[in-house]
Each structure stands twice: as structure tokens, then as C-alpha cells.
Design a protein around this nucleic acid. Sequence first.
DNA 1: GTGAAAGCGCTAACAT
DNA 2: ATGTTAGCGCTTTCAC
Lengths: 336, 336
Amino acid sequence: MATIEDVARHAGVATSTVSYALSGKRSISEKTRQRVERAVAELGYRPHAGARALASARTNTLGLMLPLRPDVDVRVVMEFVTGIVTRARAFDHDVLLVTQAEDAAIERLASGRMVDALILMDVEAADPRVARAAALGNPTILIGLPDDPQGLQCVDFDFAAAARLAVRHLAGLGHTSIGLVGPPPSVVERNTSFAGRLLAGFHQEAERLGVSAAVELTPPTHAGALGAVESFRALDERPTALIVHNEAALPSVVDSIQMHGVQIPQDLSLLAICPADVAQSQSRPLTYIDIPAESIGAVAVEMAMARLEHPDAPAETRLLRPTLIDAASTAAPLNP
Amino acid sequence: MATIEDVARHAGVATSTVSYALSGKRSISEKTRQRVERAVAELGYRPHAGARALASARTNTLGLMLPLRPDVDVRVVMEFVTGIVTRARAFDHDVLLVTQAEDAAIERLASGRMVDALILMDVEAADPRVARAAALGNPTILIGLPDDPQGLQCVDFDFAAAARLAVRHLAGLGHTSIGLVGPPPSVVERNTSFAGRLLAGFHQEAERLGVSAAVELTPPTHAGALGAVESFRALDERPTALIVHNEAALPSVVDSIQMHGVQIPQDLSLLAICPADVAQSQSRPLTYIDIPAESIGAVAVEMAMARLEHPDAPAETRLLRPTLIDAASTAAPLNP
DNA sequence: GTGAAAGCGCTAACAT
DNA sequence: ATGTTAGCGCTTTCAC
């Protein structure tokens, strides 16, 4: 393996010249740059990542901490990951993946100086990782919103606004009773940040608009979805519209509704809150509010990079605004 | 951040003693080891990964190359990843994730000495990455089986044997016409290694046992699944048993069968080839052949580690044998 | 059983 | 615009 010194010798210049020619951190005459580049190509030179990290205190690596909990939808998670990895590459960074939620992992990556910055996914309202990470020197970006985001860098979808938008859309069509097929109970129990915000937004807007609101926390299974639909049908004030925020249950919800001979949207309006491609892969077109998972991942990376540039910039929290895509699975309710 | 020198000073020993006390590479008196360990704890010392990599030519990092193609099922992919990350940690290794299929990424990781070994997922029958990787100094493990695995380290599920087992099981029950709901056409077109082996095993065993065999390559959508089921029903020799090797289509296949009023297994036997948890999350219990994705990932890591220990050991290919779990979704066909 | 010191390959002052 | 050189923090001879 060629070293920078080999390149320098081959090109007849000093090692620092090679370093600078490659990094562009000081001006180099066109002629020497060419010679260096030729030498690099001819020797197939690649800088040694460890040596560079040691000398520069930069690893060009991002740590991604992704607890793989059984109740998270991997499809959605992988969209985040895609956004993160793709955007990181644009900044010439690679991604180190950690799937344990243990604090030890944070320290290993950070104190071992394996990464320049950390991205924490699936943040809970009171997440022990957050304090750990904040105590670290490394920039840390949270995907999600802990109870107290003071002084932390956070990015997430505005789930509260999404729920409000959903309720508003349906109420605007004339619905007065709306059901929410919510996330799995375990997601709510462990205080996942997004679930609480979604539920709060849902109830808040329903109250504001004077529509009645019912929630079913729904396991990510076929049986769970059927159960939720049954529960809503058994209600005195049976909902005329359903909001579904549960990617795994969505197909079964759609199916079970149709199995009852209920027409969408004539008899029942259906509105999904999920990533675009999940909505679009259902058995019928669905009106949905997009969870822009890839964008959120990309923003997380951008925030991390900005932090590396300006370590003292004030912390900011970014919530991405919801947009509704109408595919005619919602309509005015039938007059009784 | 404390360095090894700080620790040495704090413990009143030489830096080399600290190094050896930590690595155990030479014997240390119990007393000094204690002192070193105390100093490490008190200072919160963590070795600098880059410095270590530079001095030892070991990064304790594994590269995982995971092309995110739209036709792969992320659920299954994430099981592989889980197996890999978990097992890697057991060997004190972290995982660097690359999602581009580009050759450039291989060189970056390997020549940049960012990783000790590489694991390539979703290998195609004639995969350009393979030649690149083989040319590298780093140990490389392929998950999948290229056309010519000579001299390469490969691990995969024995899809051919799985297909044969499935056919044999159904033929043994008395079925004489079997349909295969296969992977998406694009998966076959791009010569994904597993798809070809599965199809070959299916046809081979069907021919051997003299049962008629039909295949529908099935897009991973609801519409695709419905289409496949319709096609089979339209056949002159309508299959009395279906093998499904398509995680995304599986739920829709089950639903559409039931929607036709067809009883499983009385009217139609159904056998899935998929990871256990996919089979178990369906709307009814399914007889299935397990794709042990996590185990495969774990084996890949073990092979990589073995390679690091014994770089000159002969290359081996490991194919994991299929097992069938019977959940009564297959039965003898009705006599006409 | 322990220490001293020579690198590993790079970056970034500091020179010129 | 380019060259010289002192580290960065660790591992591993080599010496005792």
C-alpha cells in the first residue's frame, strides 16, 4: 500500500505538498497538482483513515445509533437510514452503525474517537442516551424530540401538526366522529417521543373543532388491525373517518374494512400518516400525510455537519411540516 | 481526553505496560494490572481508535456493503444486518455501513484501511464487486453465491435445497401440481444469486418427482400477488399447492386466496419460504421453511474473523440447510 | 516482569 | 508556492 511519502517521492515534491494538493487547504500551482494527481493515480494511493484521524482529529465517520426494537417498523427505519447514509456520503462521510441502545456504545464511539458526530434514532421522551450524549464532546443530533430539548440538536417530523392537519382535513369534510388507529401500545408505553406528540395533536385539534375522537393503540399484526377496526365499529358514536398511523397495520385495516363491505370513501374515509411509498404500496390509493423519513435523515446529517463547522452555534430543533396528498380515500360522510 | 501516557503516569508505569495490561499480550503482575485498571477507570481512558489502527494495522471495524435495491425486502435485509452487527460486537468489532453498490466504496473502505474485513450482501450471480473485492488484501465474505465461487468465502441459505424440500413435502402429501409464487421479476432479471438457485431447485425436484410445476414471478405489491393467484387459478392444471417465496407478496396471497372462498389447507396447500418471524406475523399460521437470516449474518462474521486469524486457510462456502416448520397450512389434496 | 524508544502515515504549523 | 518537521496516540520490538 502506497503511503503519502511514496506519492511525494514519485511526484518529486514534499509530503506536505501532496497533503495540501489533495485537501486543497492551500494553493498549489496547476503543474504540481497535476503531477501529484498522476502519482496518486499511478500508485493507487489512498490515505490511511487511521493516520488521518490521528493527525487531524477528524474521522470522516458518523455514528448512527439505531436501537432495533421489535415494535418499530423496519421499512420506515430503513428510509431514515437511507437518507442518512446518502447525505453523509455527500459530505464525504461514512456511517458506523450501532444497534444496541446501551450507553456504552455511545462512549465507545465518542471517546474512542471513532466518529465525528453522533445521530441517535428512535429517541424516547426521557431517553437516558440523551444525557450521556450531551455530556460528550461530540456533536449529537437526535431524531425525535425528548421532553426537554433545551440545548439539544433535534430533528423530527411534526407529528402533532400532522395529527392536527389530519383532523382538520376530515372535520372540514364534515366528519364529526373520527377514529385513530394508533401506534402499537408498546411504542406508547415506552414513551416514544413521536407517539405522544401525535396523540396530543389528535386530541387537541378534535377538541378545538368539536369532533369526537377515539383512539385504538394497535399491535402491528393482522389480528391487531382487525381488533382496532372492530372496536371502532362497536362504538356508539361510530367514526365515519379513520386516521391510520401504523405502517404495519395499514394493509390489514384496509382489507378488513373492505371485507365488511364498507366502501372507501363513501361509507368510511381513510387517511394514512406514513411515508409516501408505504401509502402508495397499499391495495388501493390512499389519501395520506407524508412522513418524509429520508429527508429527516438528510437533515440530521446536515445539522451534524453544520455543528462540526460551527461548534458554538446555538442549538436548534427542526420539525418538518406535514403535507397532505389527496388520493380520494376521504370524502364527506353520508348524511344519516 | 486521557491518553495512554496519562494512564501510565497516573499508574506509575511505562506506556507499554499499560498497553500490555490492556491487551493481555504479555504477562503482567497482578499488582501492576490492578494499578493500571484503576488508573484507566479514574481517568475514563479510552484508546484512540485511529491511533490504534495506525500502530496495529487493525481497525476492529467490519465493512458491510448493502445495496439498497428497491426490490429487496427490507425486513429480511434487516435480519441479516442484525445478525451481523450482533455477532460483530461479540468479536469487539463495529460495523461500517455502505449502501451504494459502487466499486469505489469497496476501495475506499479497504485501501483506506477503514475496515479489517468486508461483508458483501445481495451478491448477484455475476457481481462486479466480487472481482474487485477478491483483488483486495482484505478478507471478504459474500452473502450469496456467485456463479463461480472458486476461491471465495461465501455463505448463504441453501435455496435450492429449500425449494427441493418444499416440493418434496407437497409431493409427499399427494400433490401433483404445484405453483411457485416467486420473487419479483426484477430480482430474477438482475441475476440475484438466490433466485436462480431457488427456481432451479424447484424445477429439478418437480421433474424428479414427476409433478407439474408452474412459476409466477411476482412483484412485491398487492396487485402483483393477486395477479399471481389469478394466473394459477386460470391454469388448465390448476395447482393444489402453492409455495410462496416472496415476503412482500405473502400477506396478499393469503388474503386473496381466502377472498376466493378457498380453504387452506383443505382446498389449497400453502407453504412459505421466508424468515420465521415473517411467517409468524401472517394472518393465519403458515407452514414454512425458515430462511435463517440472522444466523447467516452471524456466520458471515465468524468467517470473516476466522479469516483474520488464518489468512491462508482454504476458502470455503457454507450453505445453511433448510428446515420445515409445519403449521398445518399444507395437507393432502382433495380427491377430485 | 517492566521500560525505553522506534515507528505507523498523516496533518499542520513553521520555515523559506 | 513549496519544503521541513514536530507531533497525533498507540503497538511492538528490543533491552534489561
